[in-house]
Design a protein around this nucleic acid. Structure first.
Lengths: 203, 203
DNA sequence: ACAGAATCCGGACCCTGGGTCCGCTTCAAC
DNA sequence: GTTGAAGCGGACCCAGGGTCCGGATTCTGT
């Protein structure tokens, strides 16, 4: 994993160039899978060798882009104001988190798509998924009731899968706001279910 | 789209052979993506040309296998006894349907995985997804309350995505029965939420 | 049973796209 | 200025999906 920083200015410049070029390409092109690594290299005015040295492989490049874009939201979640930040009551925070994920993926559709469906190794092994999941799980745990937070967190996050979002937006022409409303509604329903009625989880 | 039946017996024999070989390969091999088309052809004792003529492309082969395996469940859903069949009350039928999907994907993990993550064109364009979705949606519609069935159906089905199932089973070592219990629990929670508490869906 | 036509067979072949290699250039430390 | 470590880039490699076509097989009409 060639992840360590170089101090050489050409290396740094090229890294930036690649990031910018890739970013542009992924947002412009229709489908993420017709952005080839050669395309990116060419658009950045760089050789393929350089590109692969900087990011390891395709997934590495995607990851780097994704993480960069994700940073602001990460901040907001970790230390921002309610309802996203840690001070928010769990019942509000869960829908807020899901809404944040949804909006992020709407704003970065192509990228999220490329990263999630990107073939080898499921999205569930990605660290950023791991982060969302464990956070959501922790928040769910603060809500009383016999809900099993682990599964619930997975199931809720599944509703924000990039290709589902894409399908709803592109095929079903569902507008952004109603998607948000539906997701919020869904999350709320999951949370506000009557605990007395819930099955006890066996095992 | 070379989908029409041939009357020639060699064609039919070869089609069967390919189906059988592919089935065997996909269940044996670790990851679906290291079953190549050439492998399948070889295992079936057939040339690649034959294989591609019979199924069009990789996705076509997968689809054919999948549909074949799905047939019994389809029967049970369309005309079987409750709680899967049409006679079941919606509140019971929804979890039953999801459970059926879950079990099916557990029993055909590799195949479902290959089909869903199979790169080009999202799983949401597949006819079998369309079928599950519209059925689930119809059943949800029979339940009173301001739930928007379309989105809810998508969200519930998302919890049965092949790669999530795979992750839970393989990485988190979650046993089959507790997965089923959790999913049932989740579905029930979605259904039994207090309608008075639900947000009205705007738009 | 036989000819002719239609269909199918199969593996050599093509092509795309991710990833590697290595001789040459550029940087920065002395 | 010298030097060697790091970086550069594009030619190259390879796997795997998909195509092609000469030859074999099967169907149909008589």
């Amino acid at each position: 994993m060639p992840e360590r920083q170089s101090s050489r200015k050409d290396a740094i410049r090229n890294r930036e160039a690649v990031l910018a070029a890739a970013d542009a390409l992924f947002t412009r092109r229709e489908s993420p899978e017709d952005v080839t690594m050669a395309d990116v290299a060419a658009a950045a005015g760089v050789g393929k060798g350089t590109l692969f040295r900087a990011f390891g492989d395709r997934a590495g490049l995607l990851r780097a882009l994704y993480e960069a874009r994700l940073e602001p939201i990460r901040q907001a979640v970790e230390s921002g104001p309610p309802p996203l930040g840690p001070a928010a009551p769990p019942h509000d925070r869960v829908p807020a988190l899901l809404d944040a994920v949804l909006c992020f993926k709407l704003d970065n559709r192509r990228l999220a798509l490329a990263l999630e469906e990107g073939g080898s190794s499921s999205p569930y092994r990605a660290e950023h998924y791991e982060r969302w999941h464990s956070l959501l799980r922790a928040v769910l745990e603060q809500i009383p009731g016999p809900t099993d937070s682990d599964f619930t967190a997975h199931a809720l996050l599944a509703a924000t899968r990039a290709d589902l979002i894409e399908h709803l937006a592109e095929e079903e022409r569902m507008p952004r706001e109603s998607m948000r409303a539906h997701l919020a509604n869904f999350a709320t329903r999951v949370l506000t279910s009557d605990p007395l009625q819930g099955l006890t989880t066996e095992e």
